[in-house]
């Protein structure tokens, strides 16, 4: 086992533990914290894939901004029901839902993951993750998506300000 594989396994295990924590921890603050751990390790996985810019953007956007916002809201709501009941295992619909989910996971495993098991990277220019490359692409080939994103963000800002106003 090479060092890269060890590093990946460590990161993957931490990320999965974080994801499990989000779903199964009872206190919302702890869920948020495990999501932060998940996001930071995901950023590191992006670094492994060679996407420097997106890895750091992941940490800036998700861990630095979005999750702080989540914590902010959780604290304002002051954890309505921290002892939330997550034991839905007795519900029959839930069990069948879980079975269906397992079926979907098995299908994805069979048709996507099984065939890609022996696919390794091909040789090509590995500078795709640098900020220069991303800037270059966004201002030449993908200008319209970029502008649409900016309009979307503007709408988000306006919408959240409207919602935050006391009177509608």
């Amino acid at each position: 086992m090479t060092l890269n594989q060890v590093a990946f396994i460590i990161l993957a295990v931490i990320a999965l533990l974080g994801a499990i924590g989000v779903v199964f921890l009872k206190s919302p603050v702890r869920s948020a914290l495990s999501l932060v751990i998940n996001f930071i390790t995901l950023g590191m996985v992006y670094f492994m894939l060679g996407n420097q810019m997106l890895g750091i953007a992941q940490i800036v956007v998700y861990a630095g901004a979005i999750m702080v916002l989540f914590l902010f809201v959780i604290m304002i709501l002051r954890s309505q029901h921290p002892e939330e009941d997550t034991s839905l295992w007795k519900d029959r619909r839930f069990v069948f839902g879980l079975l269906g989910g397992a079926l979907v996971v098995a299908l994805i495993y069979n048709f996507v993951i099984q065939p890609t098991q022996s696919i390794y990277g091909a040789e090509f220019d590995r500078s795709y993750g640098s900020p220069q490359a991303i800037g270059q692409t966004f201002f030449t080939q993908y200008v319209y998506p970029f502008e649409i994103i900016s309009v979307l963000l503007l709408l988000g800002v306006v919408g959240s300000i409207m919602l935050a106003k006391r009177k509608f």
Partner: peptide, 14 residues
């Protein structure tokens, strides 16, 4: 050599 040592399936599985 990440791309030579870890298959695509690992990332997809995660």
């Amino acid at each position: 050599a990440v791309h030579d040592e870890i298959p695509l399936a690992a990332f997809l599985g995660l």
